[in-house]
């Protein structure tokens, strides 16, 4: 029963043909959240939202299950009280953490004068682990539209790639299809940051080949019609194209993908470009090393302090 029979081979061949057909048909067309995809997105998004709401305070669920409602004697009542207090402590920790994240996010948004819609991450990636996306619990009804910038307290998270009524899919900056205009700190030099190197590395390409990118340079978003300017992206860790014109570099993003929780969607642009205001103040370099560095390469970023 169920072994490698002619029938089962027939079935698998049919299924493979369907799979290849789907891939071929879908590869050429855009992949927006409409039609069947939209339905699945909104249904699963709702379920994911529910699951996250249930599993978030884990300690709470566990302790309330472990102590059913029985008031027969004093020991039970005390155990009940104990469980309730424990639950309260767990809740307090959760609330404190969340409020800190929220205030950090608020602080960053105020610095850049962004109008943000806060949202929680309710699903990470997809089941294959090859999609660099997260799903958040804010959607069209909250004012989120496609292509808006998403940030958290540390910096740039990504951009909105699809929205349903109550959820949205955010394409992370490290997605291979992601390409975001970036500007080097304290200069007006432009480039683009692209993903595809895994979650903790971005590739920065400088458009002006005459300028040397240096290790430690920081990047903010350039901004365009949809994307806002001035959101911190990351710091250059390695200049990859050393021999030639130093146009590409590896960038370590400020945002850690693994711990994403509270994010903000920037729904309206600030009246003026915030520049580098959002980057945290750089600690002063130790004095002995400063001359050696400025002698090695022309570094306008280090010479000009303003």
């Amino acid at each position: 029963m169920g072994r490698d029979t002619r029938r089962s081979r027939l079935v698998i061949v049919a299924l493979l043909i369907v799979a290849f057909t789907l891939i071929t048909l879908d590869y050429r067309t855009g992949r927006s959240a409409t039609g069947a995809r939209g339905v699945v997105h909104s249904v699963l998004g709702g379920v994911e939202n529910g699951v996250t709401a249930v599993t978030r305070p884990i300690g709470r669920t566990v302790s309330s299950l472990a102590h059913p409602n029985r008031y027969h004697d004093r020991a039970d009542r005390l155990a009940q009280d104990n469980a309730r207090l424990r639950r309260q402590i767990a809740d307090d920790g959760q609330v404190t953490r969340l409020s800190k994240e929220l205030s950090d996010l608020r602080l960053l948004a105020d610095k850049g004068q962004y109008s943000i819609v806060p949202a929680k991450v309710i699903a990470v990636g997809d089941v294959t682990g090859t999609d660099w996306t997260v799903t958040i619990n804010a959607g069209r009804d909250d004012g989120v539209v496609v292509d808006k910038t998403v940030l958290n307290a540390d910096g740039l998270v990504g951009t909105v790639s699809a929205v349903t009524a109550h959820t949205a899919v955010v394409r992370l900056a490290c997605d291979p299809g992601s390409r975001i205009g970036a500007r080097l700190e304290r200069t007006q030099l432009l480039g683009a940051v692209a993903g595809g190197q895994g979650p903790s590395t971005l590739t920065f390409t400088l458009y002006d080949a005459s300028f040397r990118v240096q290790k430690g340079d920081r990047l903010v978003t350039f901004g365009s019609l949809d994307y806002v300017a001035g959101v911190p992206i990351g710091e250059v860790t390695k200049v990859t194209d050393v021999g030639g014109l130093s146009r590409t570099a590896e960038v370590k993003p400020f945002v850690h993908v693994g711990t994403l929780d509270l994010v903000g969607v920037v729904v309206s642009r600030p009246p003026a470009d915030p520049g580098d205001r959002l980057l945290s103040p750089r600690p002063l370099p130790p004095q002995p090393t400063a001359p050696a560095q400025s002698g090695a390469g022309t570094a306008p970023a280090q010479d000009g302090t303003g």
Binding site: L15, A19, D26, R31, H41, L44, D126, V127
Partner: peptide, 21 residues
């Protein structure tokens, strides 16, 4: 696999192919 593809943002059918095999 098809359900997973519909729920994701990648090309339709790719995880269906892998999971089927």
């Amino acid at each position: 696999g098809v359900l997973a593809d519909l729920a994701s943002s990648h090309v339709l059918g790719q995880s269906a192919l892998v999971m089927c095999l």
